[in-house]
Nucleic acid binder design. Structure first.
Length: 140
DNA sequence: GCCAACGTTGGC
DNA sequence: GCCAACGTTGGC
């Protein structure tokens, strides 16, 4: 059982979109090896924060891994040798109150988070301590 | 809108 | 194999 963080621009795909989907959503479009490797490491039942980048800049909800890494259906460019992969996720619950990036940065206990130190990695691991800390901050 | 950070590409 | 140049991301 591991914890993760999925980043998305809400204008492109928001947590509400995931809630509305009410089922598996293929987390396609990731074109970064570190992020792909993180998805390969996921197992069914792993949980991940859903973070809104650019607009909102806050952890807004929790999602669950509902399908193991599989080929990204959008990665079929002609001649593309690399097979990108992705997991499927589904919404679990929204935070009663979103935890903003500012709040995370203000927490010494969260200073080691990848979100703080490498904001560009779109799929990140989160430690159990970080997970529980942010859940408390968000009212869960 | 700007720019720093990061990852990738390509010349050498 | 190194590194400069470039494109993209995302915070500010």
């Amino acid at each position: 059982m591991a914890y993760w963080l999925f980043k998305s621009e809400p204008d492109v795909f928001s947590f509400q979109d995931l809630v509305d989907k009410a089922g598996p959503e293929e987390w396609h479009g990731v074109r970064n090896y570190a992020a792909r490797n993180n998805m390969r490491a996921m197992v069914l039942g792993d949980l991940g924060f859903f973070y809104h980048s650019v607009k909102g800049k806050a952890v807004v909800g929790i999602a669950e891994v509902v399908a193991l890494a599989h080929p990204d259906s959008t990665a079929h460019e002609p001649g593309e040798k690399v097979v990108w992969e992705c997991v499927d996720i589904a919404a679990v619950k929204a935070f009663p109150r979103p935890v903003t990036l500012d709040e995370i940065k203000a927490e010494p206990a969260l200073a080691q988070m990848i979100l703080v130190n490498n904001s560009r990695l779109s799929v990140q691991p989160v430690t159990k301590q970080e997970w529980e800390h942010i859940c408390r901050m968000g009212g869960l």
